[in-house]
Design a protein around this nucleic acid. Structure first.
Lengths: 193, 193
DNA sequence: AGGGGCATGTAAAGAGTTACATGATTCT
DNA sequence: AGAATCATGTAACTCTTTACATGCCCCT
């Protein structure tokens, strides 16, 4: 009886709580997290949607369009399940970061090759930060009235919160990368912090 | 021929590049990442060590102690493989963060229940930050001469770099949590940033 | 004598990625 | 006509977690 929903299931419920979507649309939104820290591929999503349907947390309707398309929407039970999960303390499991794992072994390589790698990473994270900042200003521009009217009970607040986290994360990451590069370029700097 | 090593394999090589260890010791170090962003259980580690042995990246020796204990050390090939991996651009895959995923759906619950949850998270991250900061000062105290002498080519530099990342991460996380709590306590604050 | 830590494994299940597979529609 | 995108699925494999399993040593 007690349905157990996977984290991916909750990610999907979180999307469907905002608007009904097809499996394809869910997959598109989960392809890369846009200030939204979860990803999945369509091969994982389609079966999960069927599981959620079986558990009556979502409902599917064959859409009447020309194209084959099944649209999913959240049920009352689904929304209740989502609310319960959001309020529950999450099982804190450590973030895995391959770059940080590399940093732990950075001492085994020559400074030059480390600097090249870190420079590439810096570029990539800078680009992502710029992207997130653009999204933040467009969010503020497009959904300001919604935010002012509904406050923290508006879906836009969820977007805002995750975007803010994404931006903070990238800024801190960049700061760390810059610090690392500085250390490698001038090892005597180690004494100074 | 071309050996393919998993990320876990590199995590283990990174530990063995510092000192020879038993499977048990590797497991203990990977139980929770101490400023070290990777975790694994012993059930994953023992088979991985045998794979690395088969690939000649590590070498095992039945230690002569009373207790059954197999000690692993890195080979020259293993060190070369580790160096190659460290210098290679990592396949940037997005961090998964269940808390951030919850934040995306935070708008579906009442502010009070969200505040309770976030307060618990704040406590937990504050404790971890304190722990990391204590580790940083003990690192500076115990390995300063090593750092000054060998600079970025000392294992201690790896510890230092990851710890710094851990501290920065936790600080930024805490800042975000505090911001979220502020928003939920006073929704009108949304207009002010 | 019993509990906790040392020490090493296997098995099964769950989560996630990659590859295989198909077909329609829309735009250029 | 061809490419891109919409749209949905399955299969195989890899990675990770949880549970099962055993036994020794050390301290109180």
């Amino acid at each position: 009886m007690a349905v157990t929903v996977t984290t991916l299931g909750y990610a999907i419920l979180g999307l469907l709580a905002r608007e009904p979507l097809s499996g394809y649309d869910v997959a598109r939104r989960l392809r890369r997290p846009i200030g939204y820290y979860w990803t999945a591929r369509h091969s994982q999503i389609y079966p999960e949607l069927r599981r959620l349907t079986a558990d009556r947390l979502v409902r599917s309707s064959e859409a009447e369009g020309v194209r084959r398309r099944r649209e999913y929407s959240i049920t009352r039970a689904g929304r209740a399940e989502l609310q319960a999960w959001v309020g529950r303390a999450p099982s804190e499991h450590q973030p895995r970061d391959e770059v940080c794992l590399k940093a732990y072994s950075l001492w085994v390589v020559e400074a030059e090759s480390a600097i090249t790698l870190l420079g590439q990473l810096k570029q990539a994270h800078q680009a992502r930060l710029v992207e997130y900042e653009a999204m933040l200003s467009s969010l503020k521009h497009n959904r300001q009235t919604e935010l002012l009217r509904e406050g923290t009970r508006s879906p836009a607040f969820g977007n805002y919160a995750t975007l803010r986290r994404g931006i903070g994360y990238e800024r801190e990451y960049l700061g760390w990368l810059r610090w690392l590069i500085r250390q490698l370029k001038d090892p005597r700097a180690l004494t100074r912090n």
